[in-house]
Simulated assay, not measured.
Amino acid sequence: MSADLLNPPGLSGQITASDAPAAGTPLERRAQALNEAFGAADVAARLAGAAAAAHGRLVFTTSFGLEDQVLTHFIIDAGLPVEIVTLDTDRLFPEVHALWKETEAHFGVRILPFYPRHDAVEGFVGRHGLDGFYTSREARKACCDIRKVEPLGRALAGADIWITGLRADQSAARGGVRFAEAEAARGLIKLSPLLDWSRDRTLAFAKANGVPLNPLHEKGFVSIGCQPCTRAIRPGEPERAGRWWWEEDAAKECGLHVGPDGKLTRAKPASLGAGA
């Protein structure tokens, strides 16, 4: 691994080449270097460090939720070379489309959309019906694959670093998330710059900095996905309880952040170090 990767110029928290273990794939070693250098840094330094260490395109996928809006603020404020994209599933709430337009106007940025393949949607509805995702977990996951997972693959094609709004305290399944993780299947580094922020801290930052937010948050919609697959949560429920609310599974994931086994993808601690 080059010294330039481990020591991006002008940034604090650097490590030296001798500090990096030789074990692991090149992707795992790069993720480990980022964790050791910036896992304990603030969000701005994490993003700047990733940009300096990138071997190619940086892509940030936003769903216009609280965390994503805050990350958009950090990215635009620092003028980082990050492509901001979104997955329009064709079943988004009207409030999301309104916030999309407001966000572009507020930050002076164009957000690139990725839509599901029309033939895949037509085939799914033809087989299962318009709201066929209610019929079984398998049907719901198939709908998510068509509307979110496949478009994400196109959005990330050729990317070197994928920036996400994951926070470790969003759910038990996400509790082991690290700042940088090696995604071997996609051949890239996945970053979660807000992993150690609480929801309260994220909301306070957004309000203090005038970041545009979805009005559905004020109505109990904490995690906002497709309509009608998202509902407001009740007092005491975890953040993602409103996703696919008719399912009993506590690990509510659509497939964007899970591997072939259906579990949330995360790197092995031995490969990527302690992180944040």
Rank of each mutant, 00 (worst) to 15 (best):
R201F: 02
G187P: 09
A180M: 06
A182I: 05
L191W: 03
I189W: 01
D200E: 15
L188M: 12
A173Q: 14
E181A: 09
T202K: 04
L203W: 04
R174N: 10
S198C: 09
A180C: 06
L191C: 05
S198D: 07
L188R: 05
A185D: 14
R178M: 08
A184L: 13
W197T: 02
G187R: 12
G176Y: 08
L194D: 07
A185Y: 00
A180T: 04
A184Y: 03
R199G: 07
A180Y: 07
R174D: 08
R201H: 13
W197H: 09
A173M: 10
P193C: 09
S198R: 09
I189F: 03
W197Y: 11
A185W: 02
W197F: 12
A185I: 06
E183F: 08
L194E: 07
D196G: 02
L191Q: 09
D196P: 00
A184G: 10
R174L: 15
L188I: 09
R199N: 08
L194S: 04
W197G: 02
W197P: 05
L188D: 05
T202A: 14
L195N: 12
P193L: 10
V177C: 03
D196W: 04
L195Q: 14
E181N: 10
R186Y: 08
A173L: 09
E183W: 12
G175M: 06
A173K: 07
F179H: 08
R186S: 12
F179E: 06
L203N: 00
E181M: 05
L191S: 07
L203Y: 01
T202R: 01
R201G: 15
L203C: 06
L191N: 03
E183R: 05
R186K: 14
V177N: 12
W197D: 01
F179L: 15
F179T: 11
E183I: 01
W197A: 01
L195K: 12
A184C: 02
A173N: 08
K190M: 07
R201S: 13
I189Y: 00
R199F: 08
A184P: 09
K190A: 00
I189N: 02
V177P: 00
L203A: 11
R174Q: 10
F179A: 06
E183C: 04
K190C: 02
R178H: 13
A180D: 04
A172S: 14
G187H: 12
L191P: 04
A180L: 09
L194T: 05
E183L: 09
A184M: 11
G175H: 15
G175A: 15
K190P: 05
R174M: 10
G176S: 14
A184H: 15
L203K: 02
L191H: 03
K190V: 01
L195Y: 13
L194P: 07
K190G: 00
R178I: 00
L188S: 07
A182Q: 03
R186L: 15
G176N: 14
L203E: 10
R178N: 10
E181I: 00
A173H: 11
V177A: 13
G175N: 13
K190F: 02
I189S: 00
L188A: 01
L203G: 07
K190D: 01
A184Q: 14
G175W: 10
L191V: 03
W197C: 06
R201T: 13
T202C: 14
L203H: 05
A182H: 07
P193M: 10
D196K: 11
R186H: 12
R201E: 15
E181F: 02
